[in-house]
Design a protein around this nucleic acid. Structure first.
Length: 467
RNA sequence: GUCCCCUUCGUCUAGUGGCCUAGGACAACGGCCUCUCACGCCGUAAACACGGGUUCGAGUCCCGUAGGGGACACCA
């Protein structure tokens, strides 16, 4: 049997971390079984659904590299089919018309609450035979649920979960205005789309009991269920703005690589022994539902960042350039020269070793910009005292005579100059770093000089020593 | 209030009755390396929520307690 999974978000906000992980798990599971991954937008609530949210979901998934194998389905466009099924259930006596108004229901619940009883629907219309004229009144359609016994779900993640049928009321499948509810729509769509495995957040576990009976009422086979635990914020409660409740696009803006995000999401609630760094290929090869944990996990930005440093270091220089160019443009407010871009690419090995995010990478790469004179940072300025400046002009003289201009020969000459002046290498290197980059922090200064080349290096030195 | 789920270092987790004096990773702390900052390397501290069972033996199975989370719509 071919595996078909789906990700079915409601377009009421952005694609948050939990949704992204659900999508990833569905996608991975489908790929692992060489099946299909589908996307369905659950927009049965027209008032709350926005096209902006739909766009955000699409772009979020695209960023993560999670692509669906069929065009996305919009649930609202299937409403004719949903209504047809409801009508059929009505005809078969498996559903019934309910004439209760909103007010009737709130009053019923209020009363139930004051009596300390359950606030489920009391089924007052279940056996009611409407008159001809009443049939013209607006009514909703409710599904008949079993009134006794228990319902058992065999969930791949949660195991056997049992609930007494007293807790299942006759829920509405068609609203008085004739539109189908979510509860009906999911079941019909999951069946029509041939979904074999429903993998979703365990906030849906309770719904699953209701949906199970709908599947039965329609005589459809029930897909396999896997309810995965939710992701909490770092405080253990709901996701806050601090951490994961942000849309995935904000992580992109924070300079997180999509591979890092995927890897992090994968390890949140799922594991494969002690493996931490997991490539997409390995993820597809290893992913299974049985290794999903049953307890909720917390979002930890530090670990995400750690993964990010790993993936940055392992990205190609060209790739990184393409990522940071737009960020540099934002920082500078203008394009940078092709000379600078070339330098950044050659300086990338040292740069990418030191960055936790693409933002950091973009910032630190600015030392290779061509703009002159360079800006000396506040805490760096003190290194350019008269004593150090004379040291630097001495170094300038020595370097002028150099033929070969590479890392090792540069290191040699700086060491020699330091030795001749009876100072330690660091006493020479720090002023040099400040003079060339304007900062006390940079990649290896020898690497920096090699990237700059002889002319630029001497030029920058001269600017500083002359002033 | 009712129903459902969860509980191993601060965090993510390994663990499927003896291999556990509980392993890895992130973070923290200390050291080494060192031209700065990082990286890297070495090391330290850190957990089976609690109470009862079952068993020769329990982190692992069962029951209870506590704590956390989720669900109880004409939302999805």
């Amino acid at each position: 049997m071919k595996v078909v999974t789906r990700f079915a978000p409601s377009p009421t906000g952005y694609l948050h971390i939990g949704g992204a992980r659900t999508a990833l798990f569905n996608w991975l599971f489908a790929k692992h079984h060489e099946g299909q991954f589908l996307l369905r937008i659950e927009d049965t609530d027209r008032r709350r659904s926005t096209s902006d949210a739909v766009d955000k979901i699409f772009s979020g998934l695209k960023w993560l590299g999670i692509e669906c194998d069929e065009p996305p389905v919009f649930q609202s466009s299937n409403s004719t089919r949903h209504i047809e099924i409801a009508q059929k259930l009505l005809n078969q006596g498996k559903a019934y018309r309910c004439f209760c108004t909103q007010d009737d229901l709130t009053e019923m619940r209020k009363k139930a609450r004051s009596e300390g009883k359950t606030r489920l629907y009391d089924r007052r219309c279940r056996d009611y035979k409407p008159t001809e004229s009443e049939l013209n009144n607006s009514s909703s359609i409710r599904i008949k649920m079993p009134t006794e016994g228990k319902t058992l779900i065999n969930d791949i993640v949660q195991g056997d979960v049992k609930v007494s049928n007293d807790n299942l009321d006759d829920f509405i499948i068609i609203r008085p205005d004739g539109t189908p509810t979510y509860m009906l729509a999911v079941v019909v769509d999951d069946h029509d789309m041939g979904i074999t495995h429903i993998i979703r957040g365990d906030d849906h576990l309770n719904n699953a009991f209701r949906q199970l009976h709908l599947f039965h009422a329609c005589d459809w086979t029930v897909p396999k269920l896997a309810h995965i635990p939710l992701i909490h914020g770092s405080d253990g409660a709901k996701l806050s703005k601090r951490d994961g409740s942000l849309g995935v696009e904000s992580y992109e803006k924070m300079g997180i690589l999509k591979d890092a995000m995927n890897n992090y999401l994968l390890r949140l609630g799922w594991s494969h022994g002690n493996e931490e760094i997991i490539s997409r290929d390995k993820a597809i090869e290893w992913f299974n539902l049985n290794s999903i944990g049953r307890s909720p996990s917390r979002f930890d930005t530090e670990k995400l960042l750690n993964l990010n440093t790993h993936y940055i270091r392992n990205s190609s220089n060209k790739e990184l350039i393409s990522y940071i160019l737009p960020i540099i443009f934002q920082l500078m407010g203008s394009e940078i020269s092709s000379i600078a871009i070339d330098r950044i690419e050659r300086g990338m090995p040292g740069l990418k070793q030191r960055s936790k995010s693409l933002i950091e990478l973009a910032r630190s790469s600015l030392i290779y910009n061509t703009e002159m004179p360079i800006l000396i940072q506040k805490d760096a300025a003190e290194h350019l005292n008269p004593k150090n400046i004379s040291l630097l002009s001495c170094l300038h003289q020595n370097m002028k005579k150099m033929g070969k201009w590479d890392h090792d020969s540069l290191e040699e000459i700086v060491r020699e100059t330091a030795e001749d002046n009876n100072i330690k290498l660091r006493q020479m290197a720090q002023p040099l770093r400040v003079a060339l980059t304007g900062s006390t922090v940079s990649p290896s200064i020898f690497e920096v000089m090699e990237v700059f080349g002889k002319d630029e290096t001497l030029n920058r030195l001269k600017t500083v020593t002359k002033v």
